[in-house]
Amino acid sequence: MNLFRFAGDILHLLSILVLLLKIHATKSCAGISLKTQELYLAVFITRYLDLFWNFHSLYNSVFKVVYIGTTSMIVWYMRRHRNVKLTYDRDHDTFRYLFLVAPCAVLSLLINARYNLFEILWTFSIYLEAVAILPQLVLLQRTKNVDNLTGNYVFLLGLYRAFYILNWVYRFATEPGYSAWLVWISGLIQTGLYLDFFYYYVQAWKQSKKLQLPS
């Protein structure tokens, strides 16, 4: 465990908490993509299936349970809460699950480290996490005026990915024999998806203006 990895995990947790708190406090999920949240839930469940038999550390186990729990709560709010569900922007959140899930499923069957069910599900979760933000980014672009908390949520998520890259660089330099090509390439693609958003986020911040994405 190094500081980059730790910072990444904390930022990830923070991003989820920012979102959950926003929904809880405002009783609104306007601007939030349910598709992205459900894809993240699928990512966590398929990746953390090993929770019960593959114990690595208390740290990891606690994070796994918290990620699954908090993301489930967000999905519950958006689908079931009597006031929150009315604010869901269904008409703009139209990205098709199948466009993301199908290629990731096929790719995880073709490119994986070992051919067994749990390894394939784990690989699928790595691929799916890389692209799960796309419905949210598309929704942001359609909504035009991005509210601060939604903007911060996406920014924190992107920052989390950036710290994971620093963590890999650090591990590669300090741990002999450490390599994880599949995770690295997926991670680089994932972080790349945020670059455009980052650019507009920083511009808006520098000019202390409200974040607006071009169409």
């Binding site: 990895r5 593959n54 690595h56 990891n60 796994k64 390894e119 963590n167």
Partner: peptide
């Protein structure tokens, strides 16, 4: 164990 090592991240 290589496969264990790569799964030490979240």
């Amino acid at each position: 164990n290589k496969s264990k090592k790569k799964k030490d991240e979240l």
